[in-house]
């Protein structure tokens, strides 16, 4: 399984992501935002950071970079695309996932560990988890307050496309566990074909037991298993 990790000017989680994929036994390489060739990647990852300085809106300018045209074509043909944090924001701006990000309800940058619940496991990224598992995982964002209109929210819920929700330590879905104010506590959603996933928390920062956090590791394992590379 080969992951192409896109590097925009301002990306800052690209190395962590490559490291996490490799530590799970996958192959990973960088794709510069000016490239258009995805070099045979099985999965494209849009990493966290501040692409193009987040000027105008988060992800708004990144979405028009040369690589994104190829990434959108790849997704349209059923390719796997995974956006983390700023990468999720780029996916929303490019229309690969529905909705938009608003500034956190606290009006503060959130940089801390939080809890999310795994809502659905029938995606290439989450099938190695148990449904309902609670993950302790870091977030680091200012615009993570997920918004979509009522019809879109209903559709996401009906099609079981909310993959992660913010929750309390015991898995309870509440306003208390929803630090950024996202509608329906949404922390991650997938596309209709379940092959494009966006999430605000950082699994690549919770993938090394030696650092005390490994709840994100099963995402890379899920991907590898999806491609039949781990039993």
């Amino acid at each position: 399984m080969k992951c192409g990790v896109v590097v925009f000017p301002g990306s800052n989680c690209d190395r962590d992501t490559v490291y996490a994929v490799e530590s799970a036994g996958g192959e990973a390489f960088y794709l510069w935002h000016k490239e258009t060739n995805l070099r045979g990647a099985d999965c494209i990852i849009l990493p966290g950071g501040f692409a193009y300085g987040d000027y105008l809106r988060t992800g708004a300018i990144a979405r028009f970079s040369p690589i994104m045209k190829s990434v959108i074509d790849f997704a349209d043909k059923g390719g796997l695309v995974f956006g983390i944090c700023n990468g999720f924001q780029v996916l929303l701006e490019s229309g690969l996932l529905p909705g938009a990000m608003m500034i956190n309800k606290t009006l503060k940058f959130l940089g801390q560990d939080i809890f999310i619940r795994v809502e659905e496991t029938d995606t290439p990224y989450t099938h190695d988890y148990y449904q309902g598992s609670v993950l302790r995982i870091p977030v680091a964002h200012f615009e993570g307050n997920y918004y979509a209109d009522g019809d879109t929210l209903n559709l996401l819920e009906k099609e079981e496309r909310v993959i992660f929700r913010y929750c309390e330590r015991d898995g309870k879905i509440s306003e208390k566990g929803n630090l950024n104010g996202s509608l329906n506590n949404i922390a991650g959603i997938c596309s209709e074909n379940r092959r494009v996933l966006g999430m605000m928390p950082h699994p690549e920062r919770a993938s090394a037991p030696i650092l005390g956090k490994s709840d994100g590791f099963a995402m890379w394992k899920s991907l590898l298993k999806y491609f039949g590379e781990v039993a």
Partner: peptide
């Protein structure tokens, strides 16, 4: 196209 996000 770019100056606004029509979703919000």
């Amino acid at each position: 196209k770019i100056l606004s996000n029509p979703v919000i």
